[in-house]
């Protein structure tokens, strides 16, 4: 599948944004984070900005962005519509919780309920995003049980790194934040290793024989293409990354998204609060790059059933 940069930015930025907002909400409601104005403003502001940038960039790959509002209507059947509805609905508890924190310095009572709703809705929205991909039967690299947990854990892990950074910036950092981020990164690494092993070993469900129904007569081979130039289907679904490059990029994603941030987090935990800010910033930067590579691979390594007709594997 063609890895559109707008969709990569959308899924990674909104994932991190929702992860950060959910963690801020949980820790603020639990009284772990103080209800101080600037912490709330920067923390919630950063989360909302990431979500907004993600949602806006997702409209850039539309053919008719001015009609994007129509995408909220078909939530009964479409995960994309559900994602849109959930994303907009999440802004309501965020607004209530944010006003309480930033302007009234209160994250208890009704505002704690709004915080809980923020965390739940952030979870629901990321689930919807993942299901857009996981529900497509045409793409075996997406249509499996590992897609949804990977989106959730990577969103939470990148959000947790941002929480470490923001809390260090305002002097309210706790080692538990770094431990949480590290735990999520370890789970994320395990999920991605399991995912890559799964897509490498799973047998394609369809072949040119079943696609054409001609398998009963023996081996089927493409003799002539229907046209001389690449069509929309081939450009959109036929994107292929060389296996050699995919291996290297998996290593890059593994190092940048998981290994390096884990080392930096361990250093931060070991060396004490003073070094958390620079180490956390480095870890966040590295993980940001890593998650972009991971998401690029998620698209580039995905093969589409329609390409079987063009003589490729589905």
């Amino acid at each position: 599948m063609n890895p559109a940069y707008s969709v990569i930015l959308f899924t990674t930025a909104s994932g991190a944004g929702y992860g950060l907002l959910a963690l801020l909400a949980v820790f603020a409601a639990a009284g772990v984070l103080p209800a101080s104005t600037w912490l709330g403003f920067v923390g919630i502001g950063l989360g909302v900005a990431l979500v907004a940038v993600g949602l806006l960039s997702s409209t850039f790959h539309l053919g008719r962005p001015e009609r994007a509002w129509r995408a909220f209507t078909q939530w009964r059947s479409s995960w994309l519509a559900r994602e849109g509805v959930a994303a907009v609905a999440t802004f309501v508890p965020i607004a209530v919780f944010g006003i309480g924190w930033v302007f009234l310095n209160d994250t208890s009572g009704a505002f704690a309920w709004a915080a809980a709703a923020t965390a739940v809705m952030a979870f629901v929205t990321v689930c919807c995003t993942a299901m857009i991909y996981a529900s497509l039967k045409t793409i075996r690299q997406w249509n499996n049980a590992l897609t949804l947990p990977a989106y959730l854990v990577l969103g939470l892990a990148t959000g947790a790194l941002l929480l470490v950074l923001v809390s260090a910036l305002f002097g309210v950092y706790r080692p538990a934040f770094a431990t949480l981020a590290a735990t999520l990164l370890v789970v994320g690494l395990a999920l991605k290793i399991a995912y890559w092993r799964h897509i490498d070993t799973e047998q394609p469900r369809s072949t040119l024989g079943t696609a054409t129904g001609l398998g009963r007569f023996g081996e089927v081979r493409l003799l002539e293409m229907p046209h001389t130039e690449e069509n929309f289907i081939m450009r959109e679904m036929g994107y292929a990354v060389a296996r050699k490059h995919a291996r290297r990029l998996r290593v890059v994603a593994g190092l940048a998204l998981f290994v390096l941030p884990l080392i930096l987090l361990a250093l931060a935990l070991w060396s004490g609060p003073a070094s958390v800010l620079p180490l956390g910033a480095l870890a966040t930067l590295s993980a940001g790059l890593g998650v972009a590579v991971e998401r690029w691979l998620f698209f580039a390594e995905a093969t589409h059933l329609s390409m079987i007709y063009y003589g490729r594997t589905g």
Binding site: H61, R67, R70, A71, L136, S206, I233, E236, M237, L305
Partner: peptide, 24 residues
């Protein structure tokens, strides 16, 4: 009503839908 998100073409295993890039 179409916004040109292309998701329908992703969902079709037969490659039967094509984007009109001029009309979006």
């Amino acid at each position: 009503k179409c916004i040109g998100c292309a998701l329908c073409s992703w969902a079709c295993p037969y490659g039967a839908r094509e984007m009109d890039e001029h009309q979006g």
